[in-house]
């Protein structure tokens, strides 16, 4: 149990603290960047990015629009202006290339809250407490959002969406709202159940997860033969069910790529693996040939597949 509470210790020992937290640090920097870029304007008067995550304009040339919000508006029968259409296409294309739920782990401000709550749950040994919902719940939520949008003629999710609410409150300086939204989400994630919001309920994540089913950049367990079954990747992974098909795919003749759209490409598995089993790769490199032979390790990969 203590090992599950403190995953990644072996990786720190093996690779050093910085290398064992590389992707986590990069991810936090990225998340801060996506807030800071919007704050440059109001704080300095130089308008680098205007708007919010819902829709923004960078340096007066680059429009970006959340495709999920765009589609909700579309099902009400409203077609947005050209700028928003271009923006939605650019964002969708970016996530198609980088991985659908890259939004969740690299951009969404709620991720910091979710990660903190999940970390605390692990430390408190609460990993298994709280409500357990089926993985498909968020997809149903997403469907209900579209239906509600169509029936009410509004962009329905934006009435309650904590993601854009939080980002907007930060960017527009509504600090009471920042505290309220993040406090509520933290409690939901801490007490409600493991990643109950981000991976079980949030329809934004579900939408990007659909994009992730076809997206290009993927995590690959390319050195899975070197896996020593320490389980650290399962402990830190926000969507731990995505790992097995790739990591333990040997016996089913499956390739090393984590294909599930649920994977957020957060890269924590790359960090905590002392054997460097995982790497970022492309969806296309999913043949058995793409699994690298085990070099240098004393243990043999075939032993564990049994």
């Amino acid at each position: 149990m203590s090992k599950m509470q403190n995953p990644g210790a072996a990786a720190v020992e093996q690779k050093g603290w910085l290398a064992a937290h590389k992707w986590l640090i990069l991810r936090r920097l990225s998340q801060i960047l996506f807030i800071a870029a919007f704050l440059v304007g109001p704080l300095t008067g130089f308008w680098l990015v205007k708007g919010t995550l819902a829709s923004s304009m960078t340096l007066d040339v680059l429009p970006l629009t959340d495709p999920f919000i765009f589609l909700q508006s579309l099902v009400t029968g409203h077609v947005m202006e050209t700028n928003a259409i271009i923006g939605a296409v650019i964002v969708a294309a970016a996530y198609f290339l980088l991985g659908g739920r890259v939004f969740c782990s690299w951009v969404c401000p709620v991720n910091i809250i979710s990660d903190t709550a999940s970390w605390l749950r692990r430390k408190l040994g609460w990993k298994k407490t709280g409500v357990r919902l089926d993985r498909s719940t968020a997809l149903w939520t997403m469907g209900a959002v579209f239906v509600t949008s169509a029936l009410t003629g509004t962009i329905a999710w934006e009435f309650v969406n904590p993601v854009t609410m939080l980002h907007r409150a930060i960017v527009f300086g509504a600090f009471a709202s920042v505290g309220l939204v993040s406090g509520a989400l933290f409690l939901i994630e801490l007490v409600g159940g493991d990643r109950i919001w981000c991976s079980r309920l949030c329809p934004v994540g579900a939408f990007y997860g659909l994009l992730g089913k076809v997206s290009v950049l993927k995590v690959s367990a390319s050195k899975r033969k070197a896996c020593n079954d320490c389980m650290d990747c399962y402990a830190v992974c926000p969507e731990s069910h995505v790992i097995s098909p790739a990591l333990k795919g040997e016996k089913d003749n499956r390739g090393p790529i984590i294909l599930s759209g649920d994977c957020t490409n957060c890269g924590r598995c790359l960090d905590v693996c002392s054997e460097d089993v995982f790497e970022f790769s492309l969806r296309t490199r999913n043949k058995l040939d793409d699994v690298r032979p085990n070099e240098g390790s004393a243990e043999d990969g075939t032993q564990r597949a049994a």
Binding site: G41, W47, K50, G51, T52, A54, S55, S56, M57, T65, D66, I69, S73, T76, G77, H78, M80, A84, G153, T154, I155, E158, T164, M165, R168, A169, V171, F172, A174, A176, S177, L180, V181
Partner: peptide, 29 residues
């Protein structure tokens, strides 16, 4: 208003471009 809520994504670009700080975004509550 009904059409407005089918289109407005609450990005605040109108607020940012208002030279007189007339516009603001409604806060929660």
């Amino acid at each position: 208003e009904a059409d407005f809520l089918s289109a407005c994504v609450r990005c605040g670009l109108c607020v940012r471009d208002c030279p007189y700080d007339t516009l603001s975004l409604a806060d929660m509550g």
